[in-house]
Design a binder for these strands. Structure first.
Lengths: 230, 230
DNA sequence: CATCAATTTAAGAATTTTGTAAGAATTTCA
DNA sequence: TGAAATTCTTACAAAATTCTTAAATTGATG
């Protein structure tokens, strides 16, 4: 992996081209989009590693676009903006952007921030953050369709069961304690976490496992929690 | 997981305290260090999720400290500095820092950048040290998956057995007395340390050793303690 | 409002882990 | 070599954790 694709979203031609020049020699390929809607289309087609997003654009602005992208993907987004007031910065960062640069920007700083985010993203190893389909030894979970199948046969999970399984499969191999599962799926407190989670785990096993008593996928790690075995 | 630990490294008392105030109400616990050496010590002890690092400090400066930390760990580091020249920014970012804020900074911006980095770090799921796997002559311990394997075959250790083995493997070659093992794993007193530890050592050996009577990995040093042989 | 599916609660059963104790085996050192 | 110190082994008891079941509750839908 030596080339990274950076998507520049800005309605001003000169800015897009200036950025392309600044990022030359950095193992970076610049792909350009005129506004948020363009950007979303490009994201469908290309394998993008980082987005530089202008705030002020026709059709769909940068805030909306960032928000939209974050619904499904986790690639680094750096906001570009002429507004330098702090409120904007806060707003930009809270919609899910990873960094913020005000125009006019210094080319070296731009390049440094881009490289910093790329390095981080790549080093963390998951620049495929949002694969739509997660598959483990015949157990397949499709995130957009919200379906689960085992050996080709589609199963009928309830909404809750699906959420738990998605959490475990997205982090396949990682162990989640009952408390952590409850917290991340329910997002509210309970006094009966152990029983509740255990019951749902049971039901999921009943559906995805051939023999729920000897689970092939959804394993317990005694004293620690549950995981989907890789 | 609702509390994050942020380490503030700065030699000025007022700055450290100001930051603590700014980050209050953000589910953030602020831990303070006076310089790079302090910081490294804190990192040994505490589970830190993000570092705010000043550049100008006595003993060990922020650049050196960042560099040092990056040798082994991947947690987010935000550089704080009074210098605003771009060259410094570049330098800061290229030694492995994840973001850069110039003093005097706006409290809201600080909080936003901290949250942005934390969110990213946490969402990517691996807020564990980069050294995830410890390997000794075929015996491999994976810290995030909490698994242990010998010659490629995965073993099933209990939570306690795993903790003991992790302690010994993380400090591979170092000898731990029974008292020390008990203290560091159980964190409570006992009147029966010798028996208890011995029993668990036995159980671990039964799982990781081909011949538990002639251990290849988990060796005893008579009168002193146990170690994992390098 | 009746019905059905989904979820929660509760409690006992089943399983796994951990602690204890006591004697056996090994090492050290006089 | 023999006594003392230390570690090893075993079996069982206790504790902790997870599993299972069934009944109660909730929530949506016609």
């Amino acid at each position: 992996m030596s080339k990274y694709n950076v998507l520049v979203v800005d309605d001003e031609d000169e800015i897009r081209e200036a950025i392309e020049v600044y990022l030359r020699n950095e193992d970076i390929k610049v792909i350009k989009a005129k506004d948020g809607i363009d950007a979303l289309n490009v994201l469908e087609e290309e394998d993008i590693h980082l987005i530089l997003m202008d705030i002020m654009m026709p059709r769909m602005d940068g805030i909306k676009a960032t928000f939209k992208i974050r619904e499904t993907r986790n690639i680094p987004i750096i906001i570009l903006s002429a507004k330098s007031e702090d409120t904007d910065k806060i707003l930009g960062l809270n919609i899910g952007a990873d960094d913020y640069i005000t125009k006019p920007f210094n080319p070296l700083e731009l390049a440094a921030r881009v490289k910093s985010q790329l390095r981080r993203y790549i080093s963390l190893g998951n620049y495929k953050a949002t694969e739509d389909e997660i598959s483990v030894r015949g157990l397949i979970l499709n995130k957009s369709a919200k379906t689960v199948s085992v050996d080709g046969e589609e199963l009928k999970l309830t909404a809750l069961e699906y959420k738990i399984l998605e959490l475990l499969m997205e982090n396949c191999g990682r162990i989640f304690s009952m408390e952590e599962i409850y917290e991340r799926v329910w997002k509210e407190p309970s006094y009966n976490v152990e029983n509740t989670v255990a019951v749902h785990i049971r039901r999921i096993r009943e559906k995805i496992e051939i023999n729920p008593k000897e689970p092939k996928y959804l394993k317990v790690v005694w004293g620690i929690g549950y995981k989907i075995e890789k």
